[in-house]
Design a protein around this nucleic acid. Structure first.
Ligand code: ZN
Ligand code: ZN
Ligand code: ZN
Ligand code: ZN
Lengths: 160, 160
DNA sequence: CGGCGGGATGATACCAGGTCTCATCCGCCG
DNA sequence: CGGCGGATGAGACCTGGTATCATCCCGCCG
């Protein structure tokens, strides 16, 4: 198995990224880092705010958004658009271009290497005569945990 | 060259799609169909509303959203998330799964066949142990027209 | 022709996500 | 200690979208 990155590691990584970029690692930002790192999947700004307020009542909504913007600009988190149209954020690795596969049921998300996609994108651009600057790929589905759970407890209506 | 689909064709196609699905092709919806068909790329609901009001002053905002929802449910238009985070809609072909390549400069958009992506997505799902239900790929760049225009009129600052 | 019922519409209130403003605050430096 | 720029919180504001509701329109039936 992989070295299994803990939430603590992630928190530190986020804080280091802040400092490396010359931003203050203020208590609020540390809090956000901790909160972000402790979710295994995506989260919304509102969720983060609510969780944040459990620890620090006076944290402002704007502060959350500012921290999230900052982290997004450092590529430590990324904004995703859920199929529902809602916006969410997800922790991710700033060092390598990749995409996200998220479970629509439990929200967990795994990073997916770009792999062959780069080639594909390139070819598409060439064929269409576009210079492609950016692409976004998002994958939605159900993780194995949720799938087996669903199989074990079939909701009303499935087996007549 | 391809038979070059006109805006008029698209308008009719949209209206036929409405009728086939059992919805009334009311004057408002026809108007929306015409507006949608007459853009070569993406557009926002607000733009559509503004253009609509030039022809029919009293058309309501909700009507535009309702029409757009309807067309989206028929897969005649699709919602896109621009890299800026803004939402836009784009006319598209309901008959075949595909993606969009949009020019960030002029907004024009071309359909891109899924092609090898399906295989790739499948493989990703298998490897991660997810059942993948949906995926979204969006490509952003600059079309050849905008690129040559930019080359002809270099903005201040480019060539020192 | 007159009445009916359901879908479509417009006005408007409302909501959520996100941004802006501004006065205050804080941490760091000298 | 004093000063300064960045960080913060409160709250107004903006925007995309939804919900509500009374009205309207259209096709249909008697
Ligand atoms: Zn899951
Ligand atoms: Zn990629
Ligand atoms: Zn262009
Ligand atoms: Zn596809």
């Amino acid at each position: 198995m992989r070295p299994s990155i803990t939430a603590d590691d992630s928190t530190k990584r986020i804080i280091r990224a802040l400092e490396r970029a010359g931003y203050q690692a203020t208590p609020n930002r540390r809090l956000v880092a901790r909160l972000v790192a402790s979710t295994g999947g995506h989260f919304t700004a509102a969720e983060l705010l609510e969780r944040g307020r459990q620890e620090r009542v006076n944290i402002g909504r704007a502060t959350i958004f500012r921290a999230l913007d900052l982290l997004a600009s450092l590529r430590v988190v990324e904004r995703l658009d859920l199929p529902t149209g809602a916006h969410a954020y997800v922790l991710c690795d700033p060092d390598e271009h990749h995409h996200h596969l998220v479970c629509s049921t439990c929200g967990h998300s795994v990073d997916v290497a770009d792999g062959e996609l780069a080639r594909l994108v390139d070819e598409i651009g060439r064929r269409a005569g576009y210079r492609i600057d950016a692409h976004r790929l998002e994958l939605f589905g159900m993780c194995s945990a949720c799938a087996s759970e669903q199989a074990a407890v079939p909701g009303p209506g499935s087996p007549a």
